[in-house]
Design a protein around this nucleic acid. Structure first.
Lengths: 217, 217
DNA sequence: GTCTATAACCTGATAGAC
DNA sequence: GTCTATCAGGTTATAGAC
């Protein structure tokens, strides 16, 4: 077995430190020091700090979103012409995220959660490049699972879903402190078993008044 | 009517810029330039950048959490010995946040959303100092509204609630883009009318298996 | 590929004139 | 209270030796 390359060690260190402290607060010096690499190495392998940030995300987001699609494929194959269960769609979207968070000792989990909130043009681009196809596929699946939901309401509920996901992944430590150790998230399945029913019930909630339903015309 | 003081102009500029770009990415020079003040003024009125960040939060969070408590008081007075409706507890927690976000042209809204995610010891302290009493009061109210919910599950669901709130406030622009302009949140009541039913249904969802209910002994 | 050295710049903070 | 000037230190990025 080969030792990890310098490039990989830099990516690993960056992933952990960005997740811990944020992007602006993590210097290339800190990253290369933790990676046991030279400061100049980060400019040799990547061109700039921004490019390093992009590389950190690209390494995980490609496989992550592929797994989401695969799970959704399996869901739809199983459903055939029958109804699509909202719980299954939610699991296809959430489980790969929590699994990669857990595998990487939750380092990438914090990072993924932070991506949705942190500012900067980089993230707008990362989002467009990495999530475009995923967004379209899941939007369709959510609509198929809940056809009576008006499009506007669907976007809102997906927005709430993203919020619960991002904060749950980024703030698990926060939860442990607040609950005085009662809540433990060392196993991704523990989180999913609670998050999926919560969100499924939210998605199934009656549509608030004043909205035009999909099939009103 | 008096013009805003230099101190207030600095606070206003800091509030806006911190919300837009984050804390580490906003320099004191940028803040004082936007405020039309001198760089040294920020160290004259506040002692340090950290102290300025704290002041920005303290100016709004005190009144915000007081209003939450007041609304909860009114809820509980109305309920008397009867049941407490989860929708009312949620509104007491959410409405003041969205109202302050809207009044301030959503500048403080983005900032408030970011607070939950951004790193650093400052925020842990802000959270402890500003939210301690609020957390205790609302935990009690949520328990009274849903007494059958096990404590662990309650913490999880409050965690999901915070996530939906934070991301909804911080990422409203994101939602507008994703929905291609379909979703508009210029009015706080519009958001609440969608968020409260979604979350209420989530809180009322059946408890997942394997949990010990409150009244199991 | 990996290093040292350094350029060019930005940061928060402060001293001291007015 | 408000300004200029500056300090001391950090940052990214790069040039060039090995």
């Amino acid at each position: 077995m080969d030792l990890p390359t310098t490039k990989d060690r830099i990516l690993d260190a960056a992933e952990r430190l960005f997740g811990d402290r944020g992007f602006a607060d993590t210097s290339l010096r800190t990253i290369t020091a933790e990676a046991g690499a030279n400061l100049a190495a980060v400019n040799y392998y990547f061109q700039s700090k921004d490019a390093l940030i992009q590389a950190v995300f690209a390494r995980r987001l490609g496989p992550l979103n592929q797994e989401r699609m695969d799970m959704l494929d399996a869901c739809e194959a199983r459903a055939g012409d029958g109804p699509l269960l909202i719980e299954d769609v939610l699991r296809a979207f959430l489980e790969p995220a929590f699994k990669v968070g857990h595998e990487r000792a939750s380092t990438f989990g914090r990072l993924l959660g932070r991506m949705y909130i942190d500012p900067g043009d980089i993230f707008e681009r990362i989002f467009r490049e990495q999530f475009g196809a995923t967004k379209v596929r899941f939007l369709g699946a959510f609509r198929r699972a809940l056809p009576e939901l008006p499009p506007e309401e669907m976007f809102w509920r997906m927005h709430f879903l993203i919020g619960a996901l991002a904060h749950t992944m980024a703030g698990l430590h926060h939860l442990k402190v607040t609950s005085e150790g009662l809540c433990d998230a060392s196993n991704p399945e523990t989180v999913l078993k609670r998050l999926i029913p919560f969100l499924a019930a939210g998605f199934r909630a009656p549509v608030p008044q004043g909205d035009t339903p999909c099939d009103a015309n």
